[in-house]
Design a protein around this nucleic acid. Structure first.
Length: 259
DNA sequence: AACAGGGTCAACCGCAGCTTC
DNA sequence: AGAAGCTGCGGTTGACCCTGT
């Protein structure tokens, strides 16, 4: 097999690090025109010196037009906490339940906000419990039982501790700046005509170098007024079914446990 | 004003599972 | 059948930003 030989040579020249607005425009314009057909082959005809993986990540986590930016709502936070407790760090499954949120965003939010809050809440409760019951919890078993009960309380989404401690300090400027930048990209989607010359320039290269014919289905998809997103991982039925499976599994186990 | 420390988040890395050849 | 490629996932990193001193 020699399929990977040229790819390995190319990888040495690939750019890494933050994406420039120009790169973003190239990727969006290319996907809008041709759809997503093969991440590893796409960068070259799109005029990008990036790995397919990098392009995919940029698209999925930042450029997709259906991405919701800004702060998480209380409902979203509760959903994340609830699902994380039920199914663990299955961020893609959790993301599937929160429309417009990416797994990376949820994962980051969990590590930077929610995890800390849960830990603080847990330690506060442990402190309270141990001071209140200090004289009674003499033997080790009783102590363990108490801790178990405390963590059970914390696992409950209706627990007042978690919800009440959610920090609502305003971050308007941050949110606005994100929205401003993202708005520029979003505006790309409102144009029915692709204006990027990069795509026009690379069109011939696409056909020549890759030796592929554009699928008519993909062409039609991207000629439609309303964007349709062929990256199926977020809308694809099988994926939704799988995420439902995990969530339902959690719900079922709750029911059997009488939660 | 300058620096240090902590927080945030975009991006990378490595791996696993599936598909293709 | 098995090697190689592709895709997606979760963990981790590092640059940037903010806040306190």
């Amino acid at each position: 097999m020699v399929r990977g030989s040229t790819q390995q040579c190319d990888e040495k020249r690939l750019k890494k690090g933050p994406w420039s607005p120009d790169e973003d425009h190239k990727l969006v314009a290319y996907i809008q025109r041709y759809g997503i057909w093969n991440w590893s082959q796409m960068p070259k005809p799109a005029g990008l010196a990036r790995s397919g993986k990098s392009c995919r990540l940029r698209w999925v986590n930042y450029l997709r037009p259906d991405i919701k930016r800004g702060n998480f709502s209380r409902e979203e936070e509760e959903t994340i906490i609830k699902l994380q407790q039920k199914i663990g760090n299955r961020w893609s499954v959790i993301a599937a339940k929160l429309s417009g949120r990416t797994d990376n965003e949820i994962k980051n939010y969990w590590h930077t906000h929610l995890k800390k809050r849960l830990n603080n809440d847990k330690s506060n409760r442990v402190e309270n419990t141990s001071s209140e019951t200090e004289t009674f919890l003499v033997d080790e078993e009783a102590s363990k039982a108490s801790l178990l009960e405390t963590s059970r309380e914390n696992l409950s989404p209706s627990s007042s501790g978690i919800a009440d401690e959610i920090d609502h300090k305003p971050q308007i400027t941050e949110q606005q700046s994100i929205c401003d930048t993202f708005g520029e990209l979003q505006s790309l989607w409102t144009h029915s005509q692709v204006t990027s010359t990069a795509v026009e320039d690379s069109e011939a290269m696409f056909v020549d170098s890759a030796g592929l014919t554009l699928s008519t289905a993909a062409d039609q998809v991207w000629l439609q007024q309303e964007p349709i997103f062929p990256c199926g991982s977020y809308s694809d039925d099988a994926h939704v079914l799988m995420s439902d499976y995990w969530v339902n599994l959690g719900v079922q186990s709750d029911e059997t446990n009488g939660m």
